[in-house]
Amino acid sequence: MASPDGMPRAIAKRLPLYHQSLAKLRKQGKCTVSSKELSKEVGVEATMIRKDMAFFGELGKRGVGYNVELLYRTIGRKLNLDQHWETVIVGVGKMAAALVEFNCLYGRNFRIVAAFNPEPALQNHTMVEHLPVQPLSFLPSFAKDNDIKIAILATTAAQAQMSANTIVQANIRSILNFSPVEICVPEDLKVINDIITTEMQILACYLDGMKNNQK
């Protein structure tokens, strides 16, 4: 799936890696970087980097490389790092607590501002880390009042689709899904699935390939 401006998702997933490496190079005082040098930093083939950068137009010069500052700022604008995004989390378990704690430490321009409980019968959860927990039914009004554009879904499999339906009703346009199942939402709503068991299976597949290559 591509972004609204036509950027393939595969490129979008690599942009944060490029931006982090460019930030490091800026601190080191480097003015230019070649695709080969950047390849060593991010673990992406140099030819792939050049193809990715071509999406932004003529940013590099043959034999010279890319201007570090220009590329850093260009990718930063694409990642909307000049904006601050208030986010909500749906879920009250250990996964939700870990995500809130991580956001507090490394969130940069993303800030989780509220937590919502998808199971009203469980009233023993009053806080997720520092956040007070509200009933999921409060989400639509909260999202409208606070202009929430992003929701993090960290529920059980049984709660995931019902919670996603409420997120849709709240007119939130993007979901980062940490629940263990994929969810069904309208086509115009962006979902990124981060299903840990699936990622572990992919790693196991890579390990199997490495084992076969060593025979």
Rank of each mutant, 00 (worst) to 15 (best):
M162F: 06
Y72K: 05
N67C: 11
Y72A: 02
L38F: 08
F56W: 12
G93M: 00
T197Q: 06
M1C: 14
E199T: 14
M95V: 15
T166N: 07
H130R: 09
L25H: 04
A98L: 08
M127A: 06
A158G: 08
F110A: 07
R108H: 13
A170Y: 03
S163A: 15
A46L: 02
Y72G: 05
N193E: 09
E69R: 11
P8D: 09
P186C: 11
D5E: 12
P135E: 09
Q169K: 15
I49V: 15
C205W: 13
T166F: 01
C205M: 11
R62K: 15
A54L: 13
D52N: 15
V128P: 02
S35L: 05
G93N: 02
L38I: 14
A143P: 07
S174Y: 04
P118K: 06
K211W: 10
F110K: 07
E69P: 00
H130T: 11
M127T: 12
G209H: 08
V64H: 07
R50I: 09
A151T: 02
P8F: 09
E58D: 15
K94E: 00
T87S: 01
T197D: 10
Q159I: 03
P132L: 00
F178Y: 15
S34I: 10
M127S: 10
I175H: 02
G57C: 12
E69C: 04
K36A: 11
I175P: 03
M1D: 13
L105F: 11
H130D: 07
A12I: 01
R50H: 09
G65K: 02
I89C: 04
V90S: 01
M210R: 15
P120I: 10
A154L: 05
H130L: 00
P135H: 12
D145H: 14
N103W: 05
M48G: 06
V44Y: 01
R26C: 10
Q159T: 10
D5S: 10
L131K: 04
K40G: 06
R111T: 13
I196M: 14
N109Q: 14
E37T: 14
R62N: 13
Q169F: 04
L131D: 05
L71C: 11
V181F: 08
Y206R: 13
P4S: 11
L207E: 15
M210N: 13
C31Q: 14
Q169V: 08
E199H: 11
I202L: 08
A23I: 04
S35R: 08
A115S: 09
T87K: 01
Y18P: 01
N146S: 11
V90C: 01
P16I: 09
C104A: 14
A2M: 00
V90D: 02
I112W: 03
M48W: 05
L189W: 04
I175E: 02
M200D: 00
I152R: 01
S34F: 06
Y18I: 03
F178N: 01
